[in-house]
C-alpha cells in the first residue's frame, strides 16, 4: 500500500486511506456520530464519503458540535 501525507484538522499525518471514509475508519471515527467533513475547504456530504478520493496534500477538516453563543 502506498503511504501519502495529508493534513487532518491541521495536523500532518501519513495515511494509506484512498477515500475519505477509509480515512475516518482508519483514524477511529465512529461514522454514525455527529460530525461533518470538508476536504480542501469544500464541504463533502456524508453520502459522498465512500466515493471521495484522497491524494497527497489534501486538507481534511472534521467538525463536531460545541458550545457557542
Amino acid at each position: 500500500m502506498t503511504t501519502f501525507e495529508i493534513s487532518l484538522n491541521g495536523e500532518r499525518i501519513d495515511t494509506q486511506a484512498l477515500t475519505l471514509q477509509a480515512l475516518l475508519l482508519e483514524r477511529g471515527y465512529e461514522l454514525k456520530s455527529a460530525f461533518a467533513c470538508a476536504v480542501n475547504r469544500d464541504f463533502v456530504p456524508r453520502q459522498q464519503w465512500p466515493a471521495r478520493n484522497l491524494q497527497g496534500g489534501d486538507r481534511i477538516d472534521i467538525v463536531t458540535p460545541i458550545t457557542g453563543g
Binding site: R27, E30, D61, G68
Partner: peptide, 22 residues
C-alpha cells in the same frame, strides 16, 4: 439555543456528550 462547531480530534472517536445534553 445557539451552538458552535469545532474540530473533532480523532482520539475522541466522535462521541459528543455536549450535543447529547443539548
Amino acid at each position: 439555543l445557539t451552538v458552535g462547531l469545532r474540530r473533532l480530534q480523532p482520539e475522541s472517536g466522535g462521541g459528543n456528550s455536549f450535543w447529547q445534553r443539548i
